[in-house]
Design a protein around this nucleic acid. Structure first.
Length: 420
RNA sequence: GGCGGGAUACCCGAGUGGCCAAAGGGGCCAGACUGUAAAUCUGGUGGCUCUGCCUUCGCAGGUUCGAAUCCUGCUCCCGCCA
């Protein structure tokens, strides 16, 4: 195996990495592997709890990919056993929902499919940590527990906070870092990838490895990727994530919404554009920079072509204010409507309907009250052909006909189909 | 187990008999501005057949002309003590 020079490897590995612990051991490991021709074993573990892989997850995965490209061995741990516990990292309370083993297995398969979009899964080792945890005896578990003190556990920020605020810390959660660390022992990892919040477990892994007379792993920790709000950690529950399985156009829209200040981090962590070039890009027009960023990432999960199309479409529909190409149709059956809205029967027999009622029945607003507010604030436009007409009176009577476009606010739009 | 505090709209949180569909903030929505975002400004933010009506302040009852506010019971949270 021929590895690139250590300096070159280090430059690639260091990009977008917040912490390498212990820093000096990384070069030593790389040097040794280059001399012996033995690839380093790069560990990355995930718990198959959710299903949507988003860009936040791709940060360490991209790092994994880079290690692969440098000739090292990717080792993916599917935490099917740790998933039964739930990672307490950064949590201020224990997870509530418990996953069944069947859920976990289904999630794991789905997860591997998605991960394949970032790393070369055919060249990766995949392990499930249930393979070893399921076989451990209680005595063995006890022995492992003997390696960790409560005081050590409490050095973790999340546990310390919970302890201080008297929020429950369950015993099985205490075992989580131990399990994660034991995975490192079992697969003899040289490097472990993850976020900075994993520091405790990464260091515990070193202790356990030393205990077993194994070489100790080095933690390579990525910063936390912020979400599209530019503030908080990207995550599903916060609704600020960009999923890698989303359509190019959906990704495009989300990318264009990130705050300018967040672009630097995204370029650094999500693209391979050389950093000098990134600096130049960021000095140009922010909008152009954002388009460039979006295209670069989208191309990685779809194709150059799709990325281009998405960017063009965004420019036309969002930037240029043109009507979107995929307007959903809403079918209104006048007979049914008349039965639902007896007070509007008079209008309906003439295929007419008050604007506020229309928004409600077309599903563009959740209630007529909401529709009235929206209309009064100038949010309703009706397109008959290409001509928009602003409707500002909720009671304005609209002539219903098929093909009419109803646009409520910036985002909600529907094409009517009238049925008698 | 004892004592005390609390539960208000999407979230936080004021309100302690009528002027309360309920202050304020966050979020969100609409409009202006813009580069798309941010920032800023304006308005809005229970429902309806809408100058009015109906439903909502943990749940169920009660007092009262009138209750988010007072009383009784219940459920759940939280603090202190043991």
């Amino acid at each position: 195996m021929n590895f690139p020079p250590v300096d070159e490897q280090l430059a690639i590995i260091r990009r977008g990495v917040e912490k390498i612990v212990p820093e000096e051991e990384l070069a030593v490991k790389l040097t040794k592997s280059r001399e012996t021709g033995i690839p380093l074993r790069i560990k990355y573990g995930i718990d198959p709890t959710g299903i949507d892989v988003h860009l936040g997850h791709t940060v360490p995965l991209r790092k994994m990919r880079q290690f692969q490209e440098l000739g090292h061995q990717a080792v993916i741990i599917i935490g099917n056993y740790t998933a039964l516990v739930g990672d307490p990292s950064g949590r201020d309370q224990a997870r509530v929902k418990k996953l069944t083993e069947a859920d976990v297995e289904a999630n794991a398969r789905d997860y591997l499919n998605q991960v394949g979009k970032v790393i070369d899964i055919s060249q990766a080792e995949v392990h499930r940590n249930g393979d070893w945890f399921a076989k451990m005896s209680f005595a063995e578990i006890l022995q492992l527990c003997g390696k960790i003190t409560v005081a050590q556990l409490l050095t973790r920020d999340d546990f310390a906070k919970r302890y201080a605020s008297q929020t429950p810390i369950f015993l099985h959660e205490c075992l989580y870092p131990m399990m994660q660390a034991w995975d490192s022992v079992m697969i003899k990892s040289d490097i472990e990838l993850g976020g900075t919040e994993q520091l405790y477990s990464f260091m515990l892994a070193r202790d356990l490895q030393r205990d077993q007379h194994l070489p100790q792993q080095v933690g390579v920790m990525s910063p936390i990727l912020v979400g599209t709000d530019g503030e908080q950690k990207m995550g599903k529950s916060l609704g600020n994530y960009i999923g890698i399985s989303e359509t190019p156009f959906d990704m495009m829209k989300k990318f264009m919404q990130i705050p300018d200040a967040t672009m630097g981090m995204y370029f650094n962590l999500l693209t391979s554009i050389p950093l000098e070039e990134v600096t130049a890009i960021l000095q140009g027009h922010p909008k152009e920079a954002k388009v460039r960023l979006a295209k670069s990432v989208i191309a990685g999960y779809h194709s150059e072509q799709h990325a281009l199309e998405a960017a063009d479409r965004w420019q036309r529909e969002v930037g240029g204010g043109e009507l979107p190409t995929d307007i959903p149709t809403v079918t209104l059956n006048l007979t049914t409507l008349a039965a639902q809205l007896p007070q509007c029967q008079g209008d309906l027999v003439h295929s007419r309907l008050a604007a506020a009622q229309l928004l409600k029945v077309a599903g563009l607003t959740p209630s007529t009250s909401d529709a009235i507010r929206l209309i009064q604030q100038g949010g309703l436009s009706i397109y008959d052909g290409d001509q928009p007409t602003l409707i500002s009176d909720p009671k304005a009577v609209i002539e219903l006909k098929t093909g009419l476009l109803v646009k409520a606010g910036k985002k909600k739009i529907a094409r009517l189909v009238i049925d008698h």
